[in-house]
């Protein structure tokens, strides 16, 4: 592309070196290796690709992966909003500690998280034994997958909502209150519209992460065919049968999904930024 039409004029130096390096590094580390997924799946017939991505067990795994990720995302949104609200608006002892703990799922190795969650939620675990008395089974059921994915997704929502809540203008709320709005009305008409884009971003991030999650889920899911097999596990299963083309076909489906999700997130973020600036 021609320099002038492509880039808007700017006096700052270093665009071309920085831009070229970015594109080169991105291509070498991410794009070229990722393209191998598509090229490898293209080495086989359409029929094989279609059979690989639409066989009953794979479709069941999409249902579980998407279903559990969406449910976990929604739980994360509800719990994450509450936690972000409390962390931003209220004062209580130990608040810095609580705030620091939020990022733990992000830094804890997923396999460790998986083992720890499984020992907590099996029928004789610390939490599982009480749930078992209520007749609720968590480990080795779809519910277990939801628990693991909520653990993974929660920080994304909290960290998206927190800055927006902290920046939000409390004068607006006070104005609404002085005009006679109840606290509930203030919440639904003033606060919620303000954080909605951030909640969406957090939800989408949590979803994108949850769809691909492997380490923390395989321990707690039980891996029952048609019931609790997640999509990444089926990729591994295909590889075990030396079916690289089938494995990469499923991987390609996941890649396209997460690319679309991330694109949505970036558009949402741009919109919310414009929205904030417009105010």
């Amino acid at each position: 592309m021609a320099g002038t039409g492509f880039k808007r004029f700017n006096v700052l130096p270093g665009f071309w070196p920085a831009f070229s390096y970015t594109v080169l590094y991105l291509s070498l580390i991410v794009l070229i290796p990722l393209s191998a997924v598509f090229l490898k799946s293209a080495t086989t017939s359409w029929d094989h690709i279609w059979r690989s991505i639409s066989s009953p067990s794979v479709v069941a795994s999409y249902r579980l992966s998407f279903g559990a990720s969406i449910i976990a995302g929604l739980i994360s949104v509800a719990a994450g909003f509450l936690i972000a609200w409390v962390l931003v608006r209220y004062e209580f002892p130990g608040k810095p500690l609580a705030d620091a703990v939020v990022d733990l799922p992000f830094a804890l190795p997923t396999a460790v998280a998986g083992i720890a969650l499984t020992s907590l939620y099996t029928e004789n675990g610390w939490v599982g034994q009480y749930l078992a008395k209520l007749g609720i089974k968590v480990a080795f059921t779809p519910l277990g997958v939801v628990v693991a994915l909520t653990f993974i997704g929660l920080p994304f929502v909290i960290r998206s909502v927190q800055p927006v809540l902290a920046d939000s203008d409390q004068e607006l709320e006070e104005a609404a209150a002085s005009l006679g709005a109840t606290r509930w009305q203030v919440f639904t008409r003033v606060i919620f519209p303000l954080v909605r884009p951030a909640l969406l971003t957090g939800f989408a991030l949590a979803l994108a992460r949850a769809l691909g999650e492997y380490g923390s889920v395989i321990f707690i899911s039980g891996n029952m065919p048609m019931k609790t097999e997640i999509t990444p596990l089926l990729i591994v299963n295909k590889l075990q049968q030396y079916d690289y083309a089938g494995a990469t076909a499923i991987a390609a489906v996941m890649l396209i999904t997460s690319f679309l999700l991330l694109l949505t997130i970036n558009l949402l973020q741009r919109r919310s930024r414009r929205f904030m600036e417009a105010r």
Binding site: M1, G5, F6, K7, R8, N10, L12, F15, F19, T22, V23, L26, V30, L31, L34, V37, T110, L205, A208, R209, L211, G212, E213, Y214, G215, T231, P232, I235, V236, A251, M254, L255, S258, F259, L261, L262, L263, I265, N266, L267, R270
Partner: peptide
Amino acid sequence: AKFQFRGRNILVTLIDIPLGVSPVV
């Protein structure tokens, strides 16, 4: 961040891709 150019949003999304790729992949 300091320059405006065509395809900027796509580039930002491409940078994010590894976040959404399953570790297995």
